[in-house]
Nucleic acid binder design. Structure first.
Lengths: 252, 252
DNA sequence: TTCGCCAATTAATCATGATTAATTCCATCT
DNA sequence: AGATGGAATTAATCATGATTAATTGGCGAA
């Protein structure tokens, strides 16, 4: 290793900003001291002596940590900066920026859904508590008529995704649940981007409803295998529907 | 130490900070004007007149956007704030905070891996370019001897994950690739947390190597099905190994 | 031409107070 | 008791300059 750090050759990374260094330092201190969510950050760390940074720079560092969901600050007596656990919600907000300019295709999303959700749903069989079932029942879109306006169609598609997200949130495997909920979110975003065109298939809503009711029944009965299969078939159906819809839109 | 269950009232969401409102406003402006990565943010937006915020507050807002990976600022003539696309790397950094306090179990991660990676690898069969193969060959850990020290074992486990991440990065389905790479990252973090204990199974390294060589051969031959199966079996093997290792550690 | 130095440009940081807003806690008041 | 009205506390924001650092582009020297 030579002492040659000529910036012309290897200067992709601009020198780290002080505020970033500060944020990293504080993060390290948190993990070093094993602070848990709810714990307060010693104001000594924030006393800008720590790394000779001025008030404003420290403020930026705190803002960065707050944006990362690591801390939250409260005013008032006993206030200050507190460690928090990044919420799934917030994590998805951050993650969604990844696909802001490079949206995945519907097919890509469904590839993942078909691989993950059947297993997820199967794992729920026989494990639903009363409140789970109640929540699912409440989420089932019990409209008695076919949707009429395009807005109607859109609303029900969203409701359908909400139902799946609710299911996913019950998963024991939180990682699995998180990924699935995020996939649903991607689909919602994709749907919003093209909130138009009425339903090409009048019976679709009926089939959705049918699926939800049957699935809950199977889960309560503890029939894991049937629930898995039903979910897979349903996803296949929905994917076909969405792709056809996308095609329609492209050609129309 | 009491467990904190205070927020029964669902936290009356403190009023949004001005800096956050500013950041949101700018994000909206970006999407409204359809700015693409590389585009420069009109300094008019940043002129603190826009929402009568002072310099410091605006600075915080910019820091938030930068942390979210939406912008980057450059000094010098022609400098300023520029729209950027959040990189996968950065996205994983942000996402990893989600599991900082609530780490998933090895079994949970492998549940996802076994569902996703066989399919991913199968999709690569017959699609590898020359440079892909070269990269894979280079990544194959061609050590001729079994690892000796614990550090050795750790290094090779990391190398194995790197190999899988490299594979995943070649996937057509970027979403699938991203999730898999993130799973590997989780495992690396888990491994770092317990970088100890020498290899309980001397032949493990050999089997890993064997897998990598055979897999590349199958992929080049375009045998999707065999590659899929091989990957699944391999994952099963590695999972068993890691779980046994975790058990050892718990009992030791 | 090619290299290195200088000037111009623009963000980053420093410095320093002052003012405003949110929140808690306690002491009255009803 | 329960409501209410302050203090007291602490973050958030405002204001204002000044100084430092990174970067670009051009100009003259090798």
């Amino acid at each position: 290793m030579t002492t040659d750090d000529s910036p012309l050759v290897v200067a992709p990374q601009r020198r780290r900003k002080r505020s970033d260094a500060l944020a990293a330092r504080i993060r390290d201190l948190i993990s070093l001291h094993q602070l848990a969510p709810g714990d307060r950050l010693p104001q000594a760390w924030l006393a800008e002596q720590e790394m000779k940074a001025s008030k404003g720079t420290m403020r930026e560092a705190m803002k960065a940590l707050e944006t990362q969901g690591l801390i939250k600050s409260r005013t008032g007596p006993g206030g200050g900066a507190f460690v928090t656990a990044l919420s799934g919600e917030q994590a998805m907000d951050l993650l969604s920026n990844l696909f802001l300019f490079n949206q995945p295709s519907i097919a890509d999303v469904f590839t993942l859904r078909k691989l993950l959700e059947p297993t997820l749903v199967g794992s729920l069989a026989g494990r639903l508590e009363r409140h789970h079932v109640d929540a699912l029942q409440a989420a089932i879109g019990l409209y008695d008529s076919e949707p009429t306006t395009a807005e109607d169609v859109f609303q029900r598609r969203i409701a359908e995704l909400d139902f799946h997200s609710l299911l996913a949130s019950f998963a024991q495997n939180q990682l699995l649940g998180f990924v699935c909920v995020f996939l649903h979110r991607l689909l919602r975003d994709l749907a919003k981007g093209r909130a138009d065109a009425a339903a090409p298939e009048p019976q679709m809503h009926e089939r959705m409803l049918n699926f939800q009711v049957r699935l809950v029944r199977l889960l309560m009965a503890g029939d894991s295998e049937a629930a898995t299969t039903l979910t897979y078939d349903h996803l296949q159906d929905v994917e076909r529907y969405m792709l056809a819809h996308a095609d329609m839109r492209r050609s129309g």
